[in-house]
Nucleic acid binder design. Structure first.
Length: 916
DNA sequence: TTAGTCACG
DNA sequence: ACGTACGTGACTAAC
């Protein structure tokens, strides 16, 4: 059987993919859609054809021979979009990683290379496929060379195939004649002039009849229409030139042998390098194609499953003194995690009598060949594992998610003496969390699974847990195939062990080691304590609150149906939009991608005139309160009557924390009815809440970082910063500032922190853009250093690619280099906001550690419960109220040394409503 | 799974 | 001319 050759027109297919797919980027902000689309098309072709040879041809950016001939003839081709341009080297990198033959020859266009190679292939007796989005290549089609043109349609990619006969069928001319058609009609995008007055129709008809431009010329006198007849003579030279230009060279002097393009099996393409690159570009769908048991991964053969107690003891003995990476595997991980709780006495209950094992097992790594999975049940107990872990003389303890481990063990002993306290601090310093390290190094990713760390920092390709387990739980997998079940756990612990020092070095190189060591790592222990402590909820009161809401909702629902004249789902923006803007014909319909906008912003404008709209707004408010807060929180109450939120330390781009299951950082406060829910959050018996929040911490950070004298002095003079801003910006005495002026000044202050834009401010204040621009101008005139600072921040970010906080925390801003105005503007606002928001986040993190540690060191029964970005809530033993208030004041205000004071407002009460 | 909406700082 | 404020998470409908 004859051999098969597949030739791909690199730029053309990349271009097709770029315009055919939405704008994909990975977490680093690298655009990836064209590369992704290219690979999909390529793999589809390869799987279909199973070729023996594969080659991709690219143009070089240098001007080519044919273009030079027409020097001075300005092309109409637009410059390549930068989002596509940056993908060209990436594409080549990917192809090289796959070992695919790339041909790019100085002086020839890709077309000529493709023509030459297809011709040579055919001469060797091969069947050739040329993949391109460019119809010009149809001239290459023969009986053995087919041109394949992928088309992206809604239903997926379809490929049009053309052998010589198909070209004739579709275009009424042979492939060779196709050149002549083009010579007559021209092609502006290829700088081929053609003959004036002859378009596609005429050109095709003429060539179909006569066969070539020469024949048309010879029969010029009989050619119709007359215009064509005249021009073919008048512009004959141009026609000949055009034919030369349109003709693809098939005998170019390209150095090439089929040996270098050989592809005996598609699997050859799935190399380790390609896998790592696909991982980086986040081509999750492609990863499944890689044969993951390739011999390049050696970890899996090194781990050992241990069930025997004696053997386990031996291993722990061997581990002593080394750097240990570990992970505790909670029992029944398939079920929803039971969170560890602190008992009223302050001691934890880990081993309730009669209960099954707390842990299914534990993983441990301390060397290339020391990777272990201990399984409980047959001799090894949870207690043994935790004891062994506690008592091990480890030089360092490494985890990929330390806070999760701390759910199942308690490294803090009693704190009473100075010695015990120092011991506690030493203990904290001995830990490394690779997830947090990776987060600091790139906070844009949101997730830091071992396979990413392995590929990014170790250059190793490891299959992810999802790839190994599918949807099965660890327990299910364990029964089915012990070895596979062990894999992701062992990969995780090995990666953490191996990457630890590399991450440390990287953090040091980037000036973030202090941030990591002094802020983020201690914070892990603080957050762990806060989560375990939990906040008490009055479940009964919560239920009553929900019932009350349900009644009001029901009343509103009926009123809305009555006014609408029919029943419908008010919660469906789609249905609601139709009712309001079609049935009831309300004005000012705004559109979203999918239909009418029914956002509060839109509805609020209509509410005064249309009672049904204000009903809907109330309904929205009440259903939100009921579903998210009344019902949502009730679902999260643990057996101890408390809510134990999870604080995420590796989510936000700026360095803030986030809170989930439930989110306790967005409990209502702005509207009275919503704020009521805070009454159900209460302290334990003999305790009360003390709550402190920073006063305008972000604006103070800005004042300090910019060094603006005027703003710094403003903070020294008065506590009402918005009022003094209004007074200074509008040049009026402080006491004569009207409420409206103060409101405007407040909006400008917020706007500055968000990365000011006249449009944003105008939206917020419902004023014209021009007015907003004037406010901003006056603001900057008043505080010139602020403008200087913001401009400099953006400039620096553009140069370095990232912003930095006062404590060295970085945030990459890839949008700054976008060619898209909107994206770039976004990047500029981000660059202005991130150092401010991030520095504020750093400061309250420092405060949290200091408050937590003071409470601990002073042997208080009071404890930190929640952080809400600029607020700390402390459950305070009544006798310690003054002590706690002192600690909060000292530690929050002393957390950073800024050019302005950090002021706090402190309140206390019997519940969160009263305390804030 | 995604889009729309809305709660917070 | 472009079309927006910065940072989050939960719930619902509808694909």
């Amino acid at each position: 059987m004859s051999k098969k050759l597949v030739l791909i027109d690199g730029h053309s297919i990349l271009n097709r993919a770029f315009f055919g797919l939405p704008d994909l980027t990975n977490a680093e902000g690298v655009h990836t859609n064209a590369v992704y689309g290219f690979l999909n098309i390529m793999f589809r072709i390869l799987e279909e054809e199973k070729p023996d040879y594969l080659t991709v041809a690219f143009d070089l950016s240098a001007p080519t021979f044919r273009h030079k001939m027409f020097d001075g003839y300005k092309g109409t081709r637009k410059p390549m979009a930068p989002e596509l341009k940056e993908q060209v080297p990436l594409m080549k990198e990917m192809l090289r990683a796959m070992g695919i033959c790339i041909v790019e020859k100085e002086g020839f266009e890709a077309d000529d290379v493709l023509g030459t190679l297809s011709c040579r292939g055919e001469q060797e007796g091969m069947e050739v496929s040329v993949i391109s989005g460019d119809r010009d290549l149809l001239q290459l089609a023969t009986e053995h060379v087919q041109i394949r043109i992928p088309k992206t349609k809604k239903t997926g990619t379809e490929i049009e195939n053309y052998y010589a006969k198909d070209v004739k069928e579709r275009y009424l001319v042979t492939p060779k004649e196709f050149i002549d058609v083009k010579a007559l009609m021209g092609d502006t995008s290829d700088n081929i002039p053609g003959v004036p007055g002859i378009g596609e129709k005429t050109a095709t008809a003429l060539i179909a009849q006569y066969g070539s431009i020469e024949a048309v010329y010879e029969h010029a006198d009989e050619v119709k229409p007359p215009r064509a007849s005249k021009n073919i003579v008048e512009f004959w030279d141009q026609a000949v030139m055009s034919k030369t230009l349109a003709t693809i060279i098939t005998d170019a002097d390209v150095e090439y042998s089929f040996d270098q393009a050989e592809l005996s099996d598609i699997q050859e393409l799935y190399t380790e390098d390609a896998y790592v690159l696909c991982k980086r570009l986040e081509f999750k769908n492609l990863l499944g194609r890689f044969q993951l048991d390739s011999p390049t991964i050696n970890v899996e053969e090194q781990f050992q499953i241990v069930k025997d107690q004696k053997l386990a003891e031996k291993i722990w003995k061997k581990a002593g003194g080394k750097s240990l990476a570990f992970h505790l595997i909670p029992a029944e991980s398939g079920k929803k995690k039971e969170k560890l709780q602190t008992e009223p006495g302050g001691q934890m209950s880990l081993f309730e009598t009669g209960k099954k094992e707390v842990l299914s097992g534990m993983t441990l790594a301390f060397g290339e060949e020391d990777i272990y999975l201990f399984l409980t049940g047959q001799g090894i107990t949870s207690e043994f594992l935790i004891d062994a872990w506690q008592n091990a003389k480890a030089s360092r303890r490494i985890s990929s998610d330390l806070k999760a481990e701390l759910q199942y063990c308690q490294p803090a002993g009693s704190i009473g003496t100075e010695e015990e306290w120092n011991h506690y601090l030493d203990m904290r310093k001995g830990y490394m969390d690779t997830g947090i390290a990776a987060y600091l190094l790139n906070p844009l990713k949101g997730e830091y699974p071992y396979e990413d760390i392995a590929s990014e920092y170790l250059g190793m390709m490891l299959p992810s847990k999802a790839e190994l387990f599918g949807k099965k739980s660890f327990e299910q997998m364990l029964e089915e195939d012990e070895n596979t079940a062990a894999k992701p756990l062992c990969y995780d612990v090995y990666t953490a062990w191996k990457a630890s020092e590399i991450l440390e070095k990287e953090l040091k190189d980037q000036g973030m080691w202090e941030l990591y060591q002094n802020i983020e790592m201690p914070l892990v222990f603080v957050l762990s304590d806060m989560e375990k402590q939990g906040i008490s909820i009055d479940a009964q009161a919560l239920k009553e609150y929900g019932s009350k809401l349900a009644e009001s909702i029901s009343v509103l629902e009926h009123q809305i149906y009555e006014k609408a004249g029919e029943q419908f789902n008010i919660n469906s923006p789609k249905q609601l939009g139709v009712i309001l803007f079609e049935k009831l014909q309300l004005p000012n319909a705004k559109k979203t991608k999918t239909g009418y906008s029914t956002s509060a912003e839109v509805l609020e404008k209509l509410a005064p005139e249309y009672p049904i709209v204000s009903d809907i707004l109330s309904y929205r408010q009440l259903t939100k309160l009921k579903s998210t807060y009344a019902d949502g929180l009730a679902n999260c109450i643990a057996d101890d009557g408390k809510i134990h939120t999870t604080f995420n330390q590796t989510i936000t781009a700026t360095g803030r924390l986030s809170s989930t299951e439930p989110n306790l950082q967005n409990i209502p406060i702005r509207i009275e009815l919503g704020k009521e829910i805070r009454r159900v959050f209460h302290p334990e018996k003999d305790f009360l809440f003390v709550d402190s929040d920073y006063s305008q911490i972000e604006l103070r950070v800005l004042a300090s970082m910019s060094g603006d004298r005027q703003l710094i002095d403003a903070y020294r003079q008065h506590s009402d910063i918005h009022r003094i801003t209004a007074s200074q910006v509008f040049h009026i005495p402080f006491d004569e500032v009207t409420p409206l002026q103060r409101r405007n000044a407040k909006a400008v202050n917020f706007g500055i922190v968000y990365g000011i834009s006249s449009f944003g401010l105008s939206q917020d204040l419902s004023i014209s853009r021009k007015e907003a621009a004037e406010y901003i101008e006056r603001y900057f005139a008043t505080y010139p250093k602020i403008k200087e600072f913001l401009d400099q921040t953006v400039k620096d970010a553009k140069e370095k690619g990232y912003t930095t906080t006062l404590f060295g925390r970085r945030r990459p801003v890839p949008e700054l280099s976008s060619s898209n105005f909107m994206q770039r503007s976004f990047g500029e606002r981000v660059a202005m906001n991130s150092p401010i928001q991030g520095t504020a986040a750093d400061i309250i993190k420092i405060a949290m550690i200091r408050v937590h540690d003071r409470l601990m060191k002073e042997n208080c029964r009071s404890r930190l419960l929640l952080q809400v970005h600029d607020e700390l809530l402390v459950e305070t033993y009544k006798e310690e109220k003054e002590q706690v208030e002192k600690i909060l004041a000292e530690e929050m205000q002393g957390a950073a040394d800024l050019a302005v004071c950090l002021e706090i407002d402190t309140e206390s009460g019997e519940n969160w409503y009263e305390a804030h």
